[in-house]
């Protein structure tokens, strides 16, 4: 999987209330959620972000509530991937489950600047900063997660298993 795009930078401990405030949680419509993506961290983000761009953040990205609306909003806003120094547990799980590519790389998170063009090579386990000419390692997914991702997320994976049972 190769993902390339321009980066938007966020800080540490970006919580799910900042990603999609609760005042917009009275809907599950991805397009509507996308309109408010990252609103309480950067109210201009949803208006600026373009299809295929990348979010880069510090540690503990997605901490707080279990709302899946958070990765859904990011994905529906057109964001191709999130790179962070680390992810909160439920966000990590939700992102994998809905098929939003996420990459844990403290090196990348520390060095990438706003507007940098980067290319993520999931198989090789590296992120190349095309603007700065730097390369950062990224941890590969454990085999079970690769299976989930290859199936297209948790539901197709479970659907396969449910069908196998009947």
């Amino acid at each position: 999987m190769l993902i390339a795009g321009k980066c938007h930078i966020f800080g540490n401990d970006i919580d799910t209330d900042a990603i999609i405030p609760a005042r917009y949680l009275n809907t599950t419509d991805p397009a509507e959620l996308a309109r408010h993506c990252m609103e309480d961290a950067d109210p201009t983000f949803a208006g600026r972000v373009k299809q295929g761009e990348i979010i880069v953040a510090g540690k503990n990205f997605g901490c707080g509530s279990s709302r899946e609306h958070a990765p859904v909003a990011i994905k529906a806003a057109g964001v191709a991937a999130v790179i962070a120094a680390s992810f909160a547990r439920i966000f990590y799980r939700n992102a994998i489950n809905i098929g939003l590519p996420i990459f844990e790389s403290p090196g990348a998170a520390a060095s990438i600047a706003a507007g940098d063009e980067v290319q993520i090579d999931a198989e090789k386990g590296e992120i190349v900063n095309l603007t700065k000419g730097e390369t950062y390692p990224v941890a590969p997914f454990p085999p079970f997660m690769q299976e989930l991702i290859a199936a297209g997320g948790l539901m197709p994976y479970v659907a396969g298993k449910v069908r196998a049972h009947v």
Partner: peptide, 18 residues
């Protein structure tokens, strides 16, 4: 432990979770 909606959906269907 807390999970997301997709995990809940899978568990409602199978009674299992990873």
């Amino acid at each position: 432990t807390g999970v997301g909606s997709t995990d809940l959906a899978a568990t409602m269907a199978t009674g299992e979770c990873w």
